[in-house]
């Protein structure tokens, strides 16, 4: 009786989970179905014939690889800059005393919640004025507006979790402040840094609005606007191709999910929810 209830509960739970995951499953399936099978009525749940032609076409006939490269450069550069600046900034905010520190922490939290559309017009004007619009560089600048407050907030809370005594001990043992930072704090902060870097990378990878407004040449377009363009500009929509692009676009995320998921959950606890 008890086991029956347990089985029933599990079946119900899993059918909900599968329903939530269904769109992603459908994306995968569509991307490996040949074109003719797509329009079959009733649709086939698993493809009758598997094909990777859409992937091949995506890589050889479209700008996908250029977009992909752009996204990699853009997200890596943003992550690198933001995590470096935010790590030092968080150290300063948590472990030093100077005037204005509290208000600065408040400003960080405020900007963390600020909508992009408020900043986008002046940023657009600023970057056009500087003559850097339409470049990956301009996007890196724009992305710091949301990534830096985010990373600072996350790292601040990770930093606060490191016992102050550790740093004090290092100072007594003869380290300078920066020496203690390097020898003791950084190793302790590493999981937090990885977690923050992953979040920053994913945020940058998925960003759409700034890319839409600031870049309109294919040579510096990232994946989000690039792939969306493939949808809009094509005469008749090739869904299999778009699904293949979606799968490819999610590859970094799938890798993170497979190997580094604990860092994602950790970041959740530190930044978003605990606040």
């Amino acid at each position: 009786m008890l086991t029956f209830r347990k089985i029933l509960f599990n079946l119900m739970a899993w059918s909900i989970v599968l329903a939530v995951a269904f769109p992603l499953f459908w994306m995968l399936v569509t991307s490996v179905k040949p074109g003719f099978e797509l329009f079959r009525r009733p649709p086939t749940i698993l493809p009758e014939t598997w094909t990777f032609e859409h992937y091949w076409k995506l890589l050889s006939e479209t700008n996908f690889l250029i977009y992909f490269r752009n996204s990699i450069i853009l997200s890596s550069a943003t992550t690198l800059v933001v995590v470096a600046v935010a790590t030092l900034g968080a150290f300063s905010l948590v472990r030093f005393k100077y005037r204005g520190r509290e208000s600065l922490a408040f400003l960080v939290l405020f900007t963390y919640l600020l909508p992009s559309v408020v900043l986008i017009i002046p940023l657009y004007l600023l970057l056009v004025g500087l003559g850097v619009s339409n470049t990956i560089f301009s996007l890196v600048i724009a992305y710091t507006t949301f990534a830096l407050p985010y990373a600072l907030w996350l790292l601040r809370s990770f930093m606060a979790g490191i016992p102050e005594d550790l740093e004090s001990a290092a100072l007594c043992d003869g380290a300078t402040r920066m020496g203690a930072f390097r020898d003791v704090i950084l190793p302790q902060l590493l999981p937090g840094i990885i977690s923050t870097a992953l979040f920053t990378f994913i945020l940058s990878w998925n960003e759409y609005l700034y890319a839409l407004v600031l870049v309109n040449s294919d040579s510096s377009r990232p994946l989000t606007t690039g792939v969306m363009n493939m949808l809009i500009s094509s005469f008749n929509i090739e869904w299999s191709l778009l699904m293949a692009a979606s799968v490819m676009m999610s590859v970094p995320l799938i890798i993170v999910f497979a190997f580094l998921q604990s860092y994602l959950t950790r970041g959740f606890g530190a930044g978003g929810v605990k606040g």
């Binding site: 989970v17 599968l18 939530v20 995951a21 769109p23 992603l24 459908w26 994306m27 569509t30 994913i202 990878w205 998925n206 759409y208 994946l223 989000t224 792939v227 969306m228 949808l231 869904w239 778009l242 699904m243 692009a245 979606s246 676009m249 999610s250 995320l253 993170v256 999910f257 998921q261 994602l264």
Partner: peptide, 21 residues
């Protein structure tokens, strides 16, 4: 993991998939 995935995928991907659905 399956539940978490939609939160992390790009909105572009989510929209493309749902438009197809």
């Amino acid at each position: 993991s399956l539940i978490l995935f939609p939160y992390f995928i790009s909105t572009v991907v989510a929209v493309l998939v749902w438009k197809w659905l």
